[in-house]
Design a protein around this nucleic acid. Structure first.
Lengths: 337, 337
DNA sequence: ACGGTATATGCAAACGTTTGCATACAGGAG
DNA sequence: CTCCTGTATGCAAACGTTTGCATATACCGT
């Protein structure tokens, strides 16, 4: 079907051999090449539109220039922002990203990892699927560089891991509500079974010690967030604030207030962990705890890149700091400030 | 760094030669292999965890098992759904997807295409960046299969192209508002300079002939959608309905009504083109024109797959039908039904 | 006994690269 | 006049596959 120009074609055109062409095009040192010949080679490559074949050069031990990324949910902006950050790090060095959605299905994840190994990717950035950590064993076995993001790799240790400060996020959110005088709170969370993620609730409760906290667990979707929030608010009308531990659930959950005719920041206070870009508005913003998704992606990609280049990477574990962003969705009802 | 098992390793273990191993593992016909030897090879491959190297086999003319996808905006769900659909088509055949965000920047796009050609992808699904059509010339020159999605490839013809029915989407949305009795309307659109996309407005206007239509153009973001809508609503309080030509703009724009205290479906009617999954709610849904994003992705990927397999693809141009999904955001103010 | 065919396996070339080694001709020092 | 060093280039092996060709044995019909 498609016909690509090879080194041989370029060599013929320039009246030399493929070896010389390779040296010129890769700008290798340790070999003398006359200005005249170099120019002829460059011109020939340009005229013929030569495009190097990564697959062939990787056979000789060169980088494949491919990075694999595994995320559990394509439509979750937390993960897409990580991908965007990784892309920025790698694209400038000529690497392409293969981004795969495991849909949190370990079987699927297993197949994906196998395919990526088949592609001989140079490295992997992985958010393990629920119950799927074991799938990454083969990655370690073949000695491929890998950086884990967000969730931990259960049953392994000594791996590189970049996460949000989950406990800190919960704590910051809880403390903010406490400071604004709220003492009766609803916490909407996700019973993922991953203790690292569930530590958001621990942080939240630690910050609001002495308060009434009604915890509800929703599924990992806007729809479930809506339904659960509806139930929670109806069962606990005394609560003055609702806190969402997960962005996706908040996205659905906030519509409950609209449907019930409750004014956010007035009749009910609301805040959440994550970045509510789904709610852009001129002057009526949600208080939220920013997890630093972009920075997480940047750091994970940076570590992976260093590993690929053979650089020493000192710390195995990186915890991204979080930031509380105050908005107008939390009302001060007699708190400290 | 990483060490992979090769055919040679498997052959040694099974006490045979690499040629035979290749035949067994690929299940090729046209060659006799005893059950005994076949079993031994299979066992050896299993024990050693052999993983084929796509790069090497593609040198011999096999498929690279890589597909490139170019989209202009990673965070736009219209495009991510297309990617998800394409993934479903290709993953089952062992292909990986390299999804690249051009950010609508032609320079960037040029680099991306060059990188993908370097990877020797088997085919390309492309939404050309604004003003970037010329970048795809090289794809045609090397004879690589390509399917264009959404926007046209300006200055080319004879290419495969799958789009939404942009005119029809606008028409359906306009007709729905007209039927509900609305005669004074705001249309929020995007002056992209791409006539195919701007035909949404033509369709809208054609459906509402005889009505007053106030057109405002916003940038391609939620923020710009918010600001433009705010201006439009303030300048034309007499309008009974607002129609958004683009999902992203609607996502920001609808918050205007909340901020102004206008009840959607009561004080103001609202509908849009796209899928407002950002607004999940139990019983208060937006009327919208569904473009069939998923189907577009499915069809584009299907065509590309057929092309790769050398199948004849009859029609160069596919237009996806749209569907009007009635919600509760449009009030009947004395229309026909 | 002989040719033919079905079964079973090995050998080696080729794909497009990279790179170590060999070759060749200068000019300068001894 | 030789030897060395610097400059300039070609040759061929290797990477991990795929596949056409060659080889070898067994069994059958004549």
């Amino acid at each position: 079907m498609s016909r690509f120009v090879t080194l041989k074609d370029v060599a013929e055109r320039a009246g030399t051999t493929i070896g010389t062409v390779s040296y010129v095009l890769n700008d290798r040192k340790g070999r003398y090449i006359s200005q005249e010949l170099r120019a002829k080679v460059l011109a020939a490559a340009e005229e013929l539109n030569y495009i190097k074949c990564n697959g062939a050069s990787s056979l000789k031990g060169m980088d494949r220039r491919l990075i694999g990324i595994l995320i559990p949910q394509y439509e979750n902006q937390f993960f897409t922002r990580i991908c965007v950050a990784a892309e920025e790090v790698f694209a400038s060095h000529g690497y392409d990203l293969i981004i795969c959605d495991t849909f949190d299905n370990p079987e699927r994840e297993k197949g994906i990892i196998h395919r990526l190994l088949s592609q001989r990717v140079d490295g992997l950035i992985v958010t393990p699927s629920l119950k799927g950590s074991e799938n990454t064993r083969i990655v370690r076995d073949v000695g491929l560089n890998m950086v884990v993001v967000d969730r931990p790799l259960e049953g392994f240790d000594g791996y590189y891991w970049v996460t949000a400060d989950n406990y800190g996020c919960g704590y910051a959110g809880g403390m903010d509500l406490y400071r604004h005088g709220h003492r009766s709170l609803i916490y909407i969370g996700w019973a993922s079974g991953i203790s690292e993620l569930e530590s958001r609730e621990r942080g939240f409760r630690d910050a609001c010690s002495g308060c009434e906290v009604f915890t509800y667990n929703a599924g990992f979707s806007a729809k479930s967030g809506y339904e659960t929030t509806m139930r929670a608010v109806k069962e606990h009308p005394e609560a003055t604030a609702v806190f969402f531990g997960f962005n996706v659930q908040a996205q659905g959950g906030v519509n409950v207030f609209r449907d019930l005719g409750l004014r956010i920041g007035e009749d009910i206070s609301v805040s959440l962990i994550g970045s509510p870009e789904w709610s852009y508005t001129g002057n009526n913003d949600f208080t939220h705890v920013h997890m630093g998704d972009y920075e997480i992606g940047k750091k994970a990609a940076g570590i992976l890149f260093d590993l690929i280049r053979g650089k020493e990477v000192p710390s195995k574990r990186v915890i991204q700091e979080c930031t509380l962003i105050g908005g107008t969705s939390v009302k001060n009802i007699g708190g400290i400030e």
